[in-house]
Design a protein around this nucleic acid. Sequence first.
DNA 1: ACAATAGTGTCTTTAAGACATTATTCA
DNA 2: TGAATAATGTCTTAAAGACACTATTGT
Lengths: 228, 228
Amino acid sequence: MAETDTSFSNPIATVDAVIMTLEQGRLRVLLHRRPNAPFAGAWALPGGFIREAEDADAEAAIARVLRDKAGASGFWVEQLATFSGPVRDPRGWSLSVAFMALVPRGQLPAATEELRLFDLDALPPLAFDHDRIVAAGVSRLRGKGAYSTLPATLLGDTFTLRELQDAYESVLGQTLDPSSFRRKVAELRLIEEVPGAERRPASGGRPSKLFRLAESPHTFDRTLGGAV
Amino acid sequence: MAETDTSFSNPIATVDAVIMTLEQGRLRVLLHRRPNAPFAGAWALPGGFIREAEDADAEAAIARVLRDKAGASGFWVEQLATFSGPVRDPRGWSLSVAFMALVPRGQLPAATEELRLFDLDALPPLAFDHDRIVAAGVSRLRGKGAYSTLPATLLGDTFTLRELQDAYESVLGQTLDPSSFRRKVAELRLIEEVPGAERRPASGGRPSKLFRLAESPHTFDRTLGGAV
DNA sequence: ACAATAGTGTCTTTAAGACATTATTCA
DNA sequence: TGAATAATGTCTTAAAGACACTATTGT
């Protein structure tokens, strides 16, 4: 490494979040419309500058952004990758630490003109290189979903087995056999029954038991769905 | 995001590499002794500042570092994560984009007082938070090794099936059954025979065929070893 | 011949996939 | 009773693991 005085020109440092949720069985991502230059008026990932005075690290910075923009906390957040270069931000050589956040639909704010969910198949043109960052988030979720509890973090505290299976099917983009799914979930001890609780379907049908995530490892070596 | 003039104080931005290789059947990591403050004299990962004038992105910066420090290129490099915060570097709020590089032993320079390989079980105290970065690299390699060709990238261009199995065993930390290993490698079309080439063992024994990596996907959904 | 290493065959166990069946509710 | 949804059982297929066996070399 080099000498001590380097403060004259460090790259711009930001954090950005691919906030995903499940709405009507489809994966959606939360975007906001940029009020200021650069890319004023364009849709972009929620994000912001790292604030040296208040952020303990990039994880703290993204937690602050999520609190301010999405008004929630406590959900799943993991680092994706860092995107960098001289041209991705017209203000200069920049570096964005990108995160993925998985949030139950109910915890997100109501849609406005400036902040709303987009279907992954119908994204608008995005500011910066945010299309690449979204792609990285989707790829991580799809790839890791099959052998982790990530899809379950898109649901609320309690859920039916069918809802859990639907979450995995939406994330993996394939239908699963209910019998095999239940067997694997049981063998992995992924969930536990909420005693006494059950939910009645709207239009008749056997009521389903309610479950919650057990304190199990959130990744496992078996797969709950098809290939990577 | 905020206004335009932000150049007054951006975090320090560096790249660091966990360069791993296989030596005598053991995973080792390349460290260098820091000549300058901070942490002068301490062992650290090869790394350096991002140079806005010459680096196209963080990947280009780490390629430059690998070329200068390890004198080689063309091997496997992938981004691990970004480590950040106000205290990890005494010079100020800093941000290090960490990479993992997998290099065949023969391509690394000879050991010196300032640059040498360390066994993962016998690491010296490391500068900055480089112990965490090494842990991330080892974890990535161990976790991804079972369902990828990463261990094979630690070998030279050609290798015997036994050498390939040894690489996987070293990375995964477990012995594998030769018969199952060969069957899976064959079914995955992971390698192809180098026509006519064979290697004779030092002290007698049937000569082994030589193989090279096929142009196959470098991750797959089956596992070549035990659990994650 | 025998030690040493490379490579194959086959049997058992376990997980996955497919699909039929039973269970419980509402209208 | 029948439609709708939840939950279970069972048969078939595929992969994994264990281990015995054959093959080819040097001494």
